[in-house]
Nucleic acid binder design. Structure first.
Length: 107
DNA sequence: CGACCTTGTCGTCATCCGAG
DNA sequence: CTCGGATGACGACAAGGTCG
């Protein structure tokens, strides 16, 4: 199903400034959609120009949405990477601590 | 096998936000 | 202000899985 190009590789976010998303939950939810779309032209007959403008806008937004999703995926992958690294680090430190405790206990 | 559920992807709309 | 890009939310659709 034409799943387009995946990006590069582990932990190299192209953007989102190194796993930093802006505050979630600031959007106040849209209007349930449905009969939307022509709101901008509701009262007037759409001219060929406005139709063309709309097509351009939709095309650009379509591409923007793709890019946005791509970035989001990469961001999540980056976070998962960090989690893995930190978990590993944590484990190492716990082991180290345990070893040191053991050492001091025998002194 | 068909009906239903789940998951992933896409396009669109509404909204936010920064630039000019 | 206006404009345009970015993004959250939603519905539609397809593919795969599960169950009777």
């Amino acid at each position: 199903m034409a799943v387009t190009g995946e990006e590069t590789e582990t932990g190299t976010p192209t953007d989102l400034s190194a796993c930093h998303l802006r505050n979630p939950g600031t959007s106040s939810s849209q209007g349930g959609t449905g009969i939307t779309g022509l709101s901008a032209f509701s009262s007037k007959q759409p001219t060929t120009d406005s139709i063309h403008k709309r097509e351009i806008r939709l095309l650009k937004n379509r591409e923007a949405a793709r890019e946005c999703r791509r970035k989001k995926k990469e961001y999540v992958r980056c976070l998962e990477n960090r989690v893995a690294i930190l978990e590993k680090q944590n484990k190492t430190l716990i082991d180290e601590l345990r070893a040191m405790k053991e050492m001091y206990r025998h002194e």
